[in-house]
Structures are given as structure tokens and as C-alpha cells.
Design a protein around this nucleic acid. Structure first.
Lengths: 203, 203
DNA sequence: CGTCTATTTGAATGTACTCAAAAGCGGTGG
DNA sequence: CCACCGCTTTTGAGTACATTCAAATAGACG
């Protein structure tokens, strides 16, 4: 099968923020490698060093930690056209505390740390590209922090399904609950409450 | 008084990540403006557009939102050698939901959005500089999110005073509590517990 | 000193959790 | 095709961590 669809996707994504010559685009894609991760398998597990940043072209990934009481805590989901990878481990080459698991069969394009360094040297514009990516990610994280501080579990749940309705379809309830910082049981209770002629709940 | 100390500080900070020619350094500093904010006054208030990113050379700033029940929720503190400013408002020129208040008399160097654009054009290396700044900020935020999800109020408090003991000295308990996502009363109770021959509390 | 705000203390309350178990759903093999 | 298994979701009862409200105490500033 003709499989440069992933490369077209990432180049289209890059083109939204910087303009590359054909030569630069080739240089970029030549530094990437394609990888597929089957559902329920891992792109990264705790204790490994994260050698690659991964751009998702298809599927869904989930980045989480497991604490000493075996409880999962979800840092983020990565769907199409977004990046996954533990940046701290990637930059410092230290073991990661995270698992990155495929929630669906997933296709990613990966770049290693040395190749990314080469990319920055050969096509300095990528400093701008990743600066812009990081700005967006930073702002999104700020909003999440504020919401976790300011909103109740119920408000967080309602806000999420209103903002990303499609999201809630693709992700298991259990994972959504944990991402939102509540137990699956509590989320289930909220759903029941909302399914009712939702008379109560407001305050 | 001879007051280019702020400029020396920011140039030293920049020099940690990129190398500038003297001309480039001059270009950079010529785009900055110096501003002082008295304790308990505001660098930014809700409803304004954040026209500047501010590098703190002295003092301490606190960025927070106030919700509909008049409760404060603290996004971040900005001490010496770090940046403050609502990036979302800055980039989109939309009104900010944040207040940025000086906890002490504070000195900042500010750059406006158009001047920052000019800087990126004239000294493209600054894309790299801010990429690196954002990487660090992004990673720090990730850690905060994980800790808010995984740790109890008590664990968060202990972790903070162990990691940044000096911090706890400079910042009012009330603000620390809110930053950590708990009420000042509860933090006070935790402190009492820890001041005791701390027999209990471990688990 | 007196005022204002921050911190401490206590009692009652509530939001969200734990533990336990039932019900639902999807896949797999006999 | 149906029966069984594993996993997710739902439900319920009891509980705990942290909150709210109220008030006393202590600190800071003028």
C-alpha cells in the first residue's frame, strides 16, 4: 500500500507555521521514522529512556504514571496531529516515569534527539516551529491547571464533554475519569445524574 | 543610580542558551522597556489585553484568577530570572482572565508583541531561546499536573517546602495554600501537624 | 497604639473516595 | 450459536480528606 500519507500529514502540519523549501522538507522527512503501535501495547514504559518524540498520524495514545498504590494518573492523550513523548526524559536522557500506551492501533512518525539536533542546525526554522507548538501546549496545560484548581469534578466533566464531544466517544470512560482527576465510579455517578431529566446538579 | 543591572541579568540569562554578538545583544535590549511595580499593585488585571511579556529581575509576581465566588486560584509565581505574562492574551490580543500582582516591589523588563516579532526576524536565535524556555516551563507544568492528580494536599505541601524551602519564606502562607490547591485553613492545620514531634502524618 | 490583614483553631458539613458486588459488553472457543 | 471469560460500567453503603463558616489570636504597617 502507498503509505506516504503520514508524511503528507506532518508536512501539512508543519506548513501551517513555517514555510519550507522542497529540499528542507525532504531533509526533515528523511530524519523521521515510521512506527505502528498495536492497541494495548506500549510506545514507552516506565524506566526506559524516551529516545523519540512521536507525531501521531493515526490512532490515539495515552501517557500516564502508575503510583505506588497501582493507581493510574493520566498526563495526556495524544490524537492525530499531535505529539507524544516524555520531553523531560527525551532532553535529559533519564529514565521516564511514564507509560505511553496505544488506545487504538496507532501510526506515528518519530524523531530521535540527535536527529532533532541536526534538524535544528540544518533547518533553523524548526526552532520556530517547535516554539509555536510549545506555546500552544503550554497554554493548554495552563488552562487545565486552572480548571483543576477552580472547578469541581462535575464541572470538569461537563466542560470536557462540551469542549471535546468526539473525544469522549473515543476514550474509555475509565480513562476519561482518571484524566479528569476522579474515580471511574464517581464519573459513572455523574453520568447517571446528567442522564436524568437533569433537574438537580446546578448550583 | 546606575541601573543597567536588570539588563545585565537578562543578557546573562539569555547567554545561558544562545550566543549573541554585541550588536545582537544591543538590538535585543533596545527592544525592552524597564518597569517597576510596587508591592500590592498590578502588572495586569482581568479584562485587559496583556501587551507585554515581562522578565523579572527583582521581586516576585503572582498570577491568578478570581472565580465567581471571589475565590483566588493561583496559576504561578514569577521570581527573579523568570517570565510573567498571560501568553494566551499576549498572542491572541484577547482580554486576559488573570491578575498579575506584585507580592514585593518588583522590577521587570518588558517586550511588546510587535517588538518580539521584530526580534524574531532580526535575531532568529531567539526562536531557539524561547523554545528552550518553553520546554522548561512545559515540563515544570507537567510535573505540577501529575502531582495535583497523584498526591494529597499534605504530600503536595511537604514536597513544595522540601523542593523550594526559600520559596515558602517569601510567599504568604495564604498564597502558598491556594497555589497548592487547598484552603489556607487546611494548610495551617497541616503546619501544626508538622510542627509537632511529627509522630503521625507518615503513611 | 489601633487598624487591617494573615494565621490559627474548632465544629459541622460535603464532595469525592474506598470497598464490594452486580450488571453489561465484547470477544473467543467449544 | 451459545457459553464462558475478562474487562468496563454501574450501583450502593460507609468513610475520609478537605471544606465552609465562625471566631479568636497574632503580626504587620502606619
Amino acid at each position: 500500500m502507498e503509505d506516504n500519507e503520514p508524511f503528507r500529514l506532518i508536512l501539512a502540519n508543519v506548513a501551517q507555521h513555517i514555510s519550507l523549501t522542497p529540499a528542507e522538507a525532504d531533509c526533515f522527512t528523511s530524519l523521521l521514522r515510521l512506527k505502528t503501535i498495536r492497541k494495548k501495547t506500549f510506545l514507552l514504559t516506565k524506566g526506559e529512556v524516551n529516545h523519540y518524540q512521536s507525531f501521531v498520524t493515526q490512532g490515539a495514545l495515552c501517557t500516564y504514571q502508575v503510583d505506588d498504590k497501582d493507581k493510574e494518573h493520566i498526563l495526556t492523550f495524544s490524537l492525530e496531529n499531535w505529539w507524544a513523548g516524555d520531553l523531560h526524559s527525551f532532553l535529559t536522557k533519564t529514565p521516564t516515569p511514564y507509560f505511553i500506551e496505544a488506545l487504538e492501533d496507532t501510526v506515528v512518525l518519530q524523531i530521535s534527539a540527535p536527529k532533532l539536533e541536526r534538524l535544528y542546525e540544518q533547518v533553523p526554522q524548526f526552532n520556530k516551529f517547535f516554539r509555536i507548538m510549545l506555546q500552544g501546549a503550554f497554554i493548554a496545560q495552563q488552562e487545565r491547571i486552572m480548571q483543576n484548581l477552580a472547578a469541581s469534578a462535575e464541572e470538569r466533566y461537563v466542560a470536557l464533554i462540551r469542549k471535546y464531544p468526539h473525544f469522549a466517544q473515543r476514550i474509555p470512560q475509565k480513562k476519561l475519569a482518571v484524566y479528569l482527576g476522579m474515580t471511574p465510579q464517581f464519573l459513572s455517578m455523574l453520568r447517571r445524574k446528567w442522564a436524568q431529566p437533569n433537574a438537580s446538579s446546578s448550583s
